[in-house]
Design a protein around this nucleic acid. Structure first.
Length: 643
RNA sequence: GGGCCCGUAGUGUAGCCAGGAUAUCGCGGCGGUCUUCGGAACCGCAGGUCGAGGGAUCGAAGCCCUCCGGGCCCGCCA
């Protein structure tokens, strides 16, 4: 909060100065200068004024500072009046540079961080209801690393929005009646695949994905009868009363449980499972279709290649129209997404009952939709009908998603309630492809394919990371018990994976390399955890009571850097919540860890002979811990006392 | 043919939305800290026509246009 207060104060002072100049409306930016000699905050206001007056920025700045800002600030006297501004000066470059009053900044920052357990979590949501859909992996296979990016992004955004006072529910959409489930049903029922893997220890989702799904897709090429079977199965899956549909649902349920095990291992939280079959059976589509017709969003194509189909117009004049209902009256893939999106935003009446599906790792309940009123349980949270819906799907679905959001905004005439959060996919590096036995020639990456069996399973990555972490922990902590080793190794592997998947911009492809992903040094999860563990050791070794602090003693470079870093958490979180860019939290955490490591290496704490200095530094360490811990929560990283 | 995204040292990346002061942080390389508050660390050095060209601007990695290179999407499939 404190850096925000500093910015606010500077903004006020500059505005007041502008009023003196007769420029009440002049816009200006505050930013952090690139070098410490330039102070803590800079304003470009002199450039703006200079442009209007056709004067050199430096001349304007000098005049503005001497005649309008300094009189307001009162020549540094403000230092005694709880001001956060220490000084202001005009730089020959044209910037007006402010220096912070470090004593007041330190006092305010540390007091806030020490007193408030949820330090840094700023109310930006005002209780806005948001649904986030992520994961949504077809229930016929295990998650691979590409899915994992989706899951981790979704969960991080959930954590960011939740802590900034949004009322968030997390949805996982289960396509239990789609082609991919039909594939494995065909394999089990009509191609003689055994229902259990030969290897007993193999997870059922791995068995279905790695073996059954890949092999049945190969069989289609040689046995056309099987593809015909698939068509029939697919139709039958939409009727929950048939024996085949019941069989499919047991398979789906088993795979789904295994998928959730993977996600829960990564400390991911869900609130509700939505099943596609129920959306179909509940006639949610028919209701949505009716209003699409009423609002004339869809129309029956009278002629042309889409004759007899219900279509919507393309997004632009040149774009093709999109078929929603085929001439045989069946609905297309995109049509199935419309009622779901409408349900999320409460545009259709909720046809579902809800029952408790499972308990979760974080002592919350995971709910699921049902159409059977007798299964319904009471006490569930309110689902659907949110103010905003955020759907996390990779960028290859952008076109379809933009069609859906276009339809919804036509329906409600309210923009921006449906938001597709797109991210670029994860590819495999040439080395990793090589490890899988795939030759990709001169290319440096390749796309994964579930159908072809070319991917790296999430569980495999987690396991590799864990065993690597285990060895590292053991070599550094010979006295740890087996239980401690496992617990710590798990926490490290989770942070390594999660950090690695959120730290990149959403529109950058992640070229996944199994070896590099196991790195525990540099810009990684374990690095930031290490800084935390170091700080905990300092606190553990000290028995002194933290009182009678003297903040003016925190005047060394690394100390003020650390204080400034602590003071910025809420600004960073607010920005991340506004822009839905989780990577900024990762960058912040890294900056904090780096700032602490420098402090730790250069400023003695326990060894400091002066008691007041020592205790005040300890207070800084405590504040650092609190702040980093809160930021860790957003990333799903566990703060470790030892590692 | 139409649309979306990316291009920043050997390599990966930040900064781009809201233009301004010596372009960020990793990995890799080289050198140092190495009787320590835990080396998963810290410090230093080398390494850059910010894909190319043009435009508007006093000023561009950033804004606009064109082009080049790479990836993705465009079915009565899902």
């Amino acid at each position: 909060m404190t850096f925000r207060a500093l910015l606010d104060e500077i903004r006020q002072v500059v505005s007041a100065g502008l009023t003196g100049l007769g420029y009440p409306q002049e816009s200006f930016d505050l930013s952090e200068p690139p070098r410490p000699e330039f102070g803590d905050v800079s304003s470009n206001v002199a450039f703006q004024i200079g442009k209007k007056l056709n004067r050199k920025p430096y001349d304007v700045a000098r005049d503005f500072v001497e005649n309008h800002l300094k009189p307001i600030l009162g020549d540094g006297e403000r230092g005694t009046q709880r001001s956060l501004i220490f000084s202001v000066e005009a730089h020959p470059g044209g910037y007006i540079n402010f220096r912070a009053n470090y004593e007041n900044l330190a006092a305010m920052t540390l007091n806030q961080a020490l007193e408030n357990p949820s330090y840094g979590f700023h109310n930006v949501g005002n209780g806005t209801r948001v649904v986030i859909e992520h994961t949504s992996v077809n229930p016929n296979k295990a998650l691979h690393v590409g899915h994992l990016r989706n899951v981790i992004l979704g969960d991080t955004i959930y954590r960011i929005l939740k802590t900034t006072n949004h009322n968030v529910t997390v949805l996982n959409y289960v396509d239990d009646s789609g082609l991919q489930v039909a594939d494995i049903v065909v394999a089990f029922k009509f191609a003689g695949f055994p229902l259990e893997p030969a290897e007993k220890s193999m997870k059922f989702d791995h068995y279905c994905g790695d073996h059954v799904y890949v092999k049945i897709n190969e069989l289609y090429k040689t046995d056309p009868g099987l593809e015909e079977r698939r068509r029939l199965v697919l139709k039958e899956l939409e009727h929950d009363t048939s024996e085949l549909a019941r069989f499919a649902s047991t398979i789906v349920s088993r795979v789904l449980h295994e998928q959730l095990m993977t996600c829960w291992k990564m400390k991911v939280h869900y609130d509700l499972l939505n099943f596609e079959s129920q959306i179909v059976i509940s006639k949610l589509w028919e209701k949505s279709f009716n209003w699409l017709k009423d609002k004339q969003i869809v129309h029956l194509a009278p002629e042309g290649k889409n004759k007899g189909c219900w279509v919507i117009k393309g997004e632009s004049e040149s774009a093709d129209e999109k078929v929603i209902v085929r001439s045989d009256h069946t609905i297309t893939y995109i049509a199935k997404d419309i009622p779901y999106a409408a349900w999320k935003l409460g545009l259709v009446q909720d046809p579902f009952y809800y029952y408790k599906f499972s308990d979760q790792w974080d002592n919350t309940s995971l709910w699921a939709t049902t159409l059977d009123s007798s299964k319904s349980s009471k006490g569930h949270p309110k689902f659907g009908s949110a103010d905003r819906a955020i759907t996390i799907i990779d960028s290859r679905q952008s076109r379809l998603q933009s069609i859906i959001s276009g339809i919804l905004s036509q329906f409600q005439l309210i923009e921006n309630r449906y938001h597709h959060l797109a991210y670029e996919p994860v590819t495999l590096s040439s080395k990793t492809a090589d490890l899988l036995g795939v030759d990709i020639g001169e290319k440096h990456s390749m796309h994964m394919s579930g159908r072809k069996g070319v991917y790296v399973n999430a569980d495999y990555v987690i396991e590799m990371a864990q065993s690597k972490a285990y060895e590292e922990v053991r070599s550094r902590n010979p006295t740890f018990s087996e239980e401690q080793l496992c617990k710590v190794a798990e926490a490290i592997s989770i942070s390594a994976i999660r950090y690695n998947l959120v730290k990149y911009d959403l529109d950058k492809i992640i070229n996944f390399d199994i070896v590099e992903s196991l790195n525990l040094e540099g810009d990684t999860g374990p690095y930031v955890q290490y800084a935390y563990a170091r700080s905990q050791r300092l606190l553990e070794k000290s028995t002194e009571e933290i009182s009678q602090l003297s903040f003016c003693l925190l005047n060394k470079g690394p100390e003020t850097m650390l204080i400034k870093a602590i003071a910025k958490l809420d600004l960073v979180v607010e920005e991340a919540a506004r822009t839905l860019k989780p990577k900024s939290i990762a960058r912040y955490v890294h900056m904090m860890a780096t700032a602490f490591n420098l402090f730790y290496e250069t400023v003695p704490v326990l060894k400091e002979p002066d008691r007041v200095k020592r205790v005040t530094r300890l207070a800084l360490v405590v504040a650092f811990c609190r702040t980093l811990k809160n930021a860790f929560y957003l990333l799903g990283i566990e703060p470790l006392n030892e590692m």
